[in-house]
Design a protein around this nucleic acid. Structure first.
Lengths: 228, 228
DNA sequence: TTTAAATTCAAACGTACATTTCAAACATGC
DNA sequence: GCATGTTTGAAATGTACGTTTGAATTTAAA
């Protein structure tokens, strides 16, 4: 049935599954090597350290995804005339789903790992990510800015991070959510289904009218209270 | 300057800070007791275990917040006529900010802890939370349902979880975000500022028009591809 | 002041972890 | 087929963790 895999490959496969399920810190090398049916020492032999294994697991997807995204962003930027927000966000879909070619359920696993990466570890992953792929995401910011010219840059900054949170958290708790959805609403939701539900949600959110505090305090008199 | 605090109090204060910063698993009891300047054994003496300490840290805020939320939800539900979505979401603001009375920066710390709770630990916190406060949140679902009568229940389920992700992730990485915002846009953003920015974002997101797959595939031809 | 309970303390316990070691097994080019 | 470099294996190392222990100390009631 299954082809013969190298030790590295077996380690990466087991590691990504356990990392996505339990997080980086809560997954031990012993769990990984035991699931991969390889020797404990082989992780350090092939990857150097646990830290480098984590990065290798992510790299397998990033080296596929990021050039694809970069290409899409560049294409949209070249169109000169501004794209709609939903057009911009839609370019994520295909590259993300193509991660399923890298590995079965690759898209889901990658997004889960991304979520873990942003909440689990404090330093090295964020650095690793920004250092290697920061420029690609700058293009995304530019595209969204063109799509929402009325949005102040600082507001856009916050809303893009809100959106990152939406995606990342949803994927981190994806398993639990999908189970509840299936039990409560009898609907099976795969990663594509979740992404499709995210698009209109995020489009509306990012493009939401900017509400000033004065406007808000009409519907939210709570803000008038002092001293807290 | 500072009043004399009991050992329990000192442990809770140190624990909440470290938990919020580093997460539950990545914070050791030795770090906590060393910051609190108490003996290592006192955690187990006063709280029983690390698990129970985590719950105690959260309880300090939950026992204040949840009855307040419950009261607000009940009040809105009693109005009979449906409330607008932004009215519903606005009731979170005051109770959340009142957590600053529980402890300095209590609102921020609590939301950060909530974020950690949803991503760090797998089992016991989610159970603890749903078991104790599930009924309060059922009222919220009802209110949102009334505010958005056109939203199918399953869509509402997903969007509320998307929104939870937005809040929870934003708070978990709040420190980093606030730093960047201050450096890039020269604007100091406190927890109240973040909450105020979240409200219009979430209102628009939850109430976004429901897009069907057919509609979407016009702007996102990516979905037409097969085999992935 | 006496006494009993509550609290603190230093030390140790057992466990799990990432990493290292080094000999054995394996593969590969000559 | 031998020698060389690569990979695996079982075992050990050292560290950090949560928790337990039992004696010392403080607290507070009698």
């Amino acid at each position: 049935m299954s082809v013969k895999h190298s030790t590295q490959h077996k380690i990466l496969d087991a590691a990504q599954t356990l990392f996505a399920e339990t997080g980086f810190t809560d997954t031990s090398l012993r769990q990984i090597t035991s699931m991969a049916e390889v020797n404990l020492a082989s992780v350090n032999y092939h990857f150097g350290s646990k830290k480098e294994l984590i990065q290798a697991v992510l790299q397998r997807y990033l080296v596929v995804l990021m050039p694809r995204l970069d290409q899409e962003f560049t294409r949209l930027l070249a169109l000169q005339q501004p794209n709609s927000l939903s057009q911009v966000l839609s370019v994520f879909v295909k590259p993300l789903l193509e991660l399923n070619k890298v590995h079965q359920n690759g898209a889901r696993i990658f997004l889960q790992l991304l979520g873990r990466g942003y909440t689990d570890v404090q330093g090295h992953l964020r650095w690793f990510f920004n250092h290697n792929y920061g420029r690609v995401l700058d293009k995304l910011v530019l595209l969204v800015q063109q799509a929402c010219p009325d949005l102040p840059p600082s507001e856009l900054f916050w809303r893009l991070h809100f959106s990152l949170g939406t995606v990342v958290f949803t994927m981190a708790s994806n398993e639990a959510l999908a189970e509840i959805a299936e039990a409560d609403f009898n609907e099976k939701v795969d990663i594509e289904g979740v992404i499709l539900r995210l698009l209109p949600y995020l489009s509306a959110a990012i493009a939401a009218p900017v509400t000033t505090v004065t406007q808000l305090s009409h519907t939210a008199p709570a803000l008038a209270i002092k001293g807290i």
